[in-house]
Amino acid sequence: MFDGYTFSELTSILAMQGFAGLILFSVFVLMALGLAIIFGQMGVINMAHGEFMILGAYVTYICSNVFSTYLPSLFGIYFFVAMILAFIASGALGAAVEWTMIRHLYKRPLDTLLATWGLSLILQQVYRSVFGAREVGVTLPDYLLGSFQLTDMVEVPINGVFVMCLTILITAGVAYLMFKSAWGRQVRAVVQNRAMAGAVGINTAKVDRGTYALGCGIAGVAGSAFTMVGSTGPTSGQLYIVDTFLVVVFGGAQSLLGTIASAFAISQSQSTLEFFLSGSMAKILTLLTVVGILMLRPQGLFSLKIRR
């Protein structure tokens, strides 16, 4: 498949596809970060994660419309407002879902899968009733359009770099929250031993709700980033759920670093292969490789050594 390309052409192609893969990478990382918290830390299989992401995307869409109609002068900053609102909306929905459904199911992880699948069906129908079945897109502010010209063959899209920076910021924030803050310590304590954490005075119910809401909120931010690369429809989220689960499992469910590494590996291999093969074959090859590696190494790339 490399026939007919010179070496410099190949490097340029790899660089181009690599940068194109950055946006995919960012969406993957943000989606997977939320899921890594919910699934890796709490053990809840959140099949509605894609729908939480799409909620964030719809919030961004609403913001884009509201700002362009009522506050055109502030249109440049609408994206930041939208992201915060997306985080709040998805997080609030997540907290509500945790309180009504998930908290009854912590002992039955496979059942959380079924219940959240039901939730995702309901959310899809709600989106379809509210926003219509047609896919919607957002208008980006001018400064996010276009691309930097690095060499005469390599271009870097500005929105890609923007989303990328955003992802790094959020990832750093989450890492700080989980591994350096008091709250993160509580979360990890509850995950490792719920009964003992309760016994030393941690309010486990509250920590659970907060963790779940945080994971969903990050999915909402992922939705905001998603609007830059794709149009939003009621079922767009479902397309990403399998990839996201694979990213989390492939990285090693408990490891945030592993999640990032596997998101990078999967998105980059997919976007690079897409140049040489058809899109569907690129996806198949990537997924097959991941499934194959998982069969050889079920615990994922990075696994914590915890004595159970």
Binding site: F39, G43, I45, P109, L110, L113, V242, F245, L246, V249, S278, S280, M281, K283, I284, L287, L288, V290, V291, L294, M295, L296, P298
Partner: peptide, 25 residues
């Protein structure tokens, strides 16, 4: 390899996705 439970569910799901993409592609 003692892959079970949740991981098994996710991997079988991924296989369903792969086969669908393969058939469509």
């Amino acid at each position: 390899r003692r892959v079970g439970g949740v991981y098994f569910a996710i991997i079988t799901q991924a296989i369903a996705a792969i086969l669908t993409i393969l058939i469509i592609g």
